[in-house]
């Protein structure tokens, strides 16, 4: 996977670059918004990581410029700690995801992976079937090995999100943002509680696990 990293802070750039290279990704680094926009519109990348605060240009404007010039590459914005306003502004400008500094590398990696192999077709698929689990997005009916599984609305949403992003780590923060729409970090085990209740219904009665916990990172949904 080819990744373009636009970041003016050398230390963060090195940190991200090193981590991604260890995952066998090809990383190109641009240190300014102008250079970044140039690379983004000329090269072919699977994901662009764009720092929000760059000298000379606001990352949000840069993203808007890219989107206006028909660059469709998925973009993750990085920003200093802040409220939800920045997040919304970033997403409205055309970014696909938004990550607040300082972030755990595993969090960034999970998001890069989620975006890197995003296939838009799956969004239109009504019935998804993996490892004997069938999820119908129209009727919200879930069965496994022909057995009906009765999920609460939120449990269904978590499962749907996981099943649409199979084989990749989904972090707790991602679930918190996508399922609950919260941008703050709960001290209690909000996400874990709901995931484990869902797993009790989806996995426990059956002999093979579809959802696995990745220690310190999140969850992975995959066929057994």
């Amino acid at each position: 996977m080819n990744i373009l990293l636009i970041e003016d802070d050398d230390e963060i750039a090195t940190f991200v670059r090193k981590g991604l290279q260890e995952q066998q990704y090809v990383v190109e680094h641009a240190a300014s918004a102008e250079q970044g926009i140039l690379s983004a519109s000329s090269g072919t990348y699977d994901v662009i990581i764009f720092d929000r605060l760059l000298p000379g240009m606001d990352g949000i404007d840069a993203v808007r410029v890219l989107r206006q010039s028909k660059v469709q590459t998925p973009i993750i914005m990085l920003t200093a700690m802040s409220g939800i306003d920045d997040r919304v502004a970033g997403l409205e400008a055309g970014a696909d995801d938004y990550l607040v500094k300082p972030f755990a590398f595993s969090e960034l990696l999970a998001r890069v992976r989620a975006l890197g192999r995003r296939k838009p077709i799956i969004n239109e698929t009504i019935e998804i079937s993996i490892g004997g689990l069938i999820l119908n997005r129209a009727t919200r009916r879930v069965t496994r090995d022909a057995q009906e599984i009765d999920l609460l609305p939120r449990e269904y949403k978590i499962l749907e999100y996981m099943i649409m992003n199979p084989n990749h780590v989904i972090t707790r923060t991602m679930l918190l943002e996508r399922i609950w729409g919260y941008s703050f970090d709960p001290k209690t085990s909000l996400v874990q509680t709901h995931v484990s209740r869902m797993r009790a219904k989806v996995d426990k009665p059956f002999d093979k696990e579809l959802i696995k916990t990745v220690r310190g990172a999140g969850y992975v949904f995959s066929a057994p």
Partner: peptide
Amino acid sequence: YESYQPVFDEN
């Protein structure tokens, strides 16, 4: 309530 009732329950 829907989000937190299970968390209270767990505790």
